[in-house]
Amino acid sequence: MNNSKVTLVGAGPGDPELLTLKALKAIQNATVLFVDDLVSAEIVAFASSGARIVYVGKRGGCKSTPQAFIEKLMVMAAREGENVVRLKGGDPFIFGRGGEEVEHLQAAGIRVEVINGITAGLAAVTSLGVPLTHRQHAHGVVFVTGHAKPGDAGTDWRALAATAHSARLTLVIYMGVSGAERIQNELLSGLPADTPVAVIQNASLSSQRHITTTLGRLAYDINLSGLASPSVIVVGDVISGLAQVEEASRDSSAQGLRRRV
């Protein structure tokens, strides 16, 4: 190992106020930042005016910078003596391919530091006032991707549904909107159709939108709402309280409209 170093920094879900102090210091001290597509401009603005910003966008369904090329760029910059930050949306180790990058950098003889960020799945439900675990509703939580790499069968949704039902688990599904219909059909093999679901787009940002629905209506209501990536799908009884409040609000609004008509 030499003195070359790269810091993987979790930028969180987008709201700059959700950055950790350690993440902020790393961003401010960097001379080169390799920035993911989902990192907000407000967070990138914390970088030094003299820092070089390299955008290496990676988003499901869109043209992306090849992972091998990103890793090559980081190695080159670190060996040139730059203070390198790899700025990643959410947390580097939750569906951020941080593990792959750590392995590659260490194999190249480069030290790696990882600074955690708030993952979108947590920020999304927190913004709605909903917990991921609850003594009455959920004994645990599973973070799972709805997007499989080419040639991979991906998540066994039927097995996961059965486990979630028997163990009372909340499911937090990343990158699942495009495959919502397939995921819904598979989960219905082990979970009731009336299982509460929330879908949250652009968690923590001013553009955040969400819907509450049920597993039986998931794909239909996503299409109806126009929600798209980046969104998080949360499945489980922890959503029940929010769903009841929003249903009551919709009923009240409908009654008010009928009275005015």
Rank of each mutant, 00 (worst) to 15 (best):
G129S: 10
A124D: 05
F95P: 00
G129I: 09
T119K: 03
G146A: 08
G109M: 07
E100C: 01
F143K: 00
E103S: 11
I118S: 13
R135H: 07
E100N: 09
V141T: 11
E113L: 04
T119R: 11
T145F: 08
A108L: 09
K149Q: 14
F143D: 01
V142F: 07
I110A: 07
T133I: 03
L105E: 01
A148I: 04
I94S: 06
R111N: 13
V141P: 04
G109T: 02
A120R: 01
F143A: 00
A138P: 12
H147P: 07
G117R: 00
R135E: 04
A124G: 02
I118F: 14
L132Q: 10
T119F: 02
A124V: 00
F95D: 03
I110K: 07
H139W: 15
H134L: 14
E100I: 05
R97P: 14
H147K: 09
V141R: 05
G98R: 04
G109K: 08
A138C: 12
G96V: 05
F93R: 01
V112G: 09
A138I: 12
A148C: 05
E100R: 12
T145C: 08
I110N: 08
G129C: 12
T126V: 04
V141Q: 02
R111M: 14
H147C: 05
K149T: 14
G117E: 05
N116I: 10
G99R: 12
S127W: 00
